[in-house]
Design a protein around this nucleic acid. Sequence first.
DNA 1: TGCGGGTTGGCATT
DNA 2: AATGCCAACCCGCA
Length: 618
Amino acid sequence: MSTNPIKVLYWFRTDLRLHDSPALLKALDLGPTEFYPVWCWDPYYVYNTPVGPNRWQFLLDSMKDLSNSISRINQKSKLFVIRGEPSITLPYVWRRWGITHLAFEEDDDQRHSRPRDASIIKAAKDAGVQVLTSPGHTLYPQVQVMAAAKGKLPASYRGFVNIVDKIGPPDPARDTPQTLPDPGPATLDDPLPPEFLEQWKNAWTDRQQPSAKDVNAKNRIAQDLAYRSPNPLSGPTGNFEIPTFDELGIRPATTHHRGGESVALQKLEEYLKNKEKVLKFEKPKTSPAQFNPASTTTLSPHLKFGTLSPRLFYSRLKNLERENPKMKATTPPESLVGQLLWRDFFHLQQSQIEHYHQIDGNRICRDFHWRLKDRNTPESQDDVEAEKLLRAWANGVTGFPWIDAIMRQLKTEGWIHHLARHSVACFLTRGHLYISWERGAEVFDDLLIDLDPALNAGNWMWLSASAYFQQYFRVYSPIQFGKKFDPNGDFIRHYCPELKDFPKQFIYQPWEAPLAVQKKAKCVIGETYPEPIVEEKEARERCLGQMKEGYAQNRYGASSGAQPPTNPRGHPAATAGHGRHLTHSPRSNPPKRKPAPAPPSPSPRAQKQLKLDFKSVA
DNA sequence: TGCGGGTTGGCATT
DNA sequence: AATGCCAACCCGCA
């Protein structure tokens, strides 16, 4: 009995850290004789998901840092990066390495992660590999909250907070392991068996979207990886190394936000030094226009990648409150603890609501007659004007400097302040353009480093008054809102440099400046910087009317408790290769295919993405 | 059925 | 800085 080796493959996904990792500790408690820390790098996902370079960089940073930390406590070990779709490569690797146990942190994303993990768990069972999982990405395990809620999902933040208050504080942060067992001889250096290659090839072909006829450069690189390198699983040199931008063919990142557990922990310590700022934190009073440094923690990407544990953050905040009782700390929802609870709230929602990331089939989401609602709309019914508006919004060329500055910061830095997200999301949807929140969420999917599907979908529903929030007549002004925080328009001057010499008086509405003023500022509206794409007041009033009508009609993505429609609009599936859609995988309905395994988390969207084009202004 | 509340609106008034 | 009004939403609770 005692001679049975315990060979553990630990699969890192949403938890790129060693500190406070319940799943990792559970795996180590087995007392493994061999321990393999693994990341699965799925080339299909990489080349078919429009994730911008900034998020890739953050992921690679985090992987490098984790690998270094692993090597620091065991120089024979590191993060082994295995190229390939997990559902095919992991079973092969188990066999080759004689793995007895697979361990990973649970992921509550029902759209992709859960089906993927279910198929892996099944494959493990079939192969006689034991599976250990643990929650760990949120403060509270979702089963615990649902049990405390007697199975009834709280529909509001207040309700959620009432329930977790009954539970008490979340688990304290656990220790960082000081040692790790050696890995075994991690080689896959002989040629892969033909049946494996066949399986891979089939899976690859299966996962091609119909419109991916034109094989672009990225696909070619991916296919090289898949078929031609001597051993695609272990990387170009067979050492399971972390991919480089060169290997991946990804264009350089532009952001200053950098990933990694050590960066996260340092950033946390730095932030906590300012006790006043931490304990008196009120989200609505922090400025969306402040940059470098931002007015908030900017720890969100670290929570997303798991380079920072939310329980560690929470316990540090609570300790600070305890140590400074006279300072009268702020409370949820506006405090920093409140922000962590918002994150838990939306993750709980995501875990319990079918089709959470879209309108169709979503029982809590109102179904307004948005423009550009359905990407599968027949060409004859395309709303060409709305597509132009969406592009202008995404590219930061709406002619509203406040909106454009935010969207350009999003593109350049991959991070924008929460209230900035509100402002641009409101503008796109219920405020001015009346375009579906799904289209906006897709742009955020691409560009946000901290993209978390639960928070993204939840907040887009909130801001578009589709769920959680109903006071649709409270509209953020693209002209006035930013002025409260930044009357001089420094934020605009930085991200829209063509406007930098505009006088303060006109910086938020440059089209109102007399031509002489425009000329003096070396920026003529309509030439150097665009005219506003809509007349503000007129657009807002039209939207208000449509929202009122939408509420009266009281349509939802799905009726409560009912099965989601399979093809709600009767539209034909997306046809091949038009290039007319801004984006197109049929995200609306449950995927026919196996869901794509997802390292850094948004959906495996196909082929085309919104072209971000600055040349008209840059 | 009625009422207070809802993470963060805008505007005018004090 | 704080209040009331705009026009008026839904939710949860008594």
